[in-house]
Amino acid sequence: MSPVLVVEGLAKDFTLHLQGGVVLPVLRDAALVLHPGECVALTGPSGAGKSTLMRCIAGNYGADAGRIMLRHRGAMHDLVSADARLLREIRRETLGHVSQFLRVIPRVPALEVVAAPLRARGVAREDALARAAALLERLNLPARLHGLPPATFSGGEQQRVNIARGFIADCPLMLLDEPTASLDPANRAVVIGLIREAKARGAAILGIFHDTEVRDAVADRRHEVAPLEDAA
């Protein structure tokens, strides 16, 4: 089957202009291929660039060189050169991202936050809210919290809102940055279930899992990200 994601020759530096222009090289010639239905775990020591690689693929960081080819609407597109409108369309339809932290408008209820990706795809409000409620229930977030803004929630509850928002739209490519970091065992099991179901419907998943139990339960293979000093 043809790949969903092909990363080639990716390079990323950070230039810190406020620190006298110090340049921190993080990625050099990074490469990665992801096929439908597989889950790949990014591994490597802290600071090796796992999150940077993932954020480049999410379009959150710009790459300095290389290509990030992604299958969207049946054709391959290079995210490195994609403009803001194409990136927005890709994020809406193809690329799901569960980041480590939830960022939302202060007053919006959790249910609306989770339903937003479906609403953006044109799903009717009632349907979107019903699906959001079902997913939050599955993640053990009780109905009495659905109408409250997530800012009032605990870290674990916020993370579950974030996970629900990431999984609700059934994207063909999912990026998961430490999705189970502050979850209890019962909710970890729910997330493992969600990942397995996503794989079964053909989604490709790229994850950073510090929790080796979760990683071993969902990952088909590991992709080692080596720190640049070691690579040199």
């Binding site: 950070f14 230039t15 379009g59 959150n60 960081y61 710009g62 803001a84 927005r88």
Partner: peptide, 12 residues
Amino acid sequence: GPADRVLDDPQH
């Protein structure tokens, strides 16, 4: 650029 990129990976 995209809002999150300008704020999370500012270049200038």
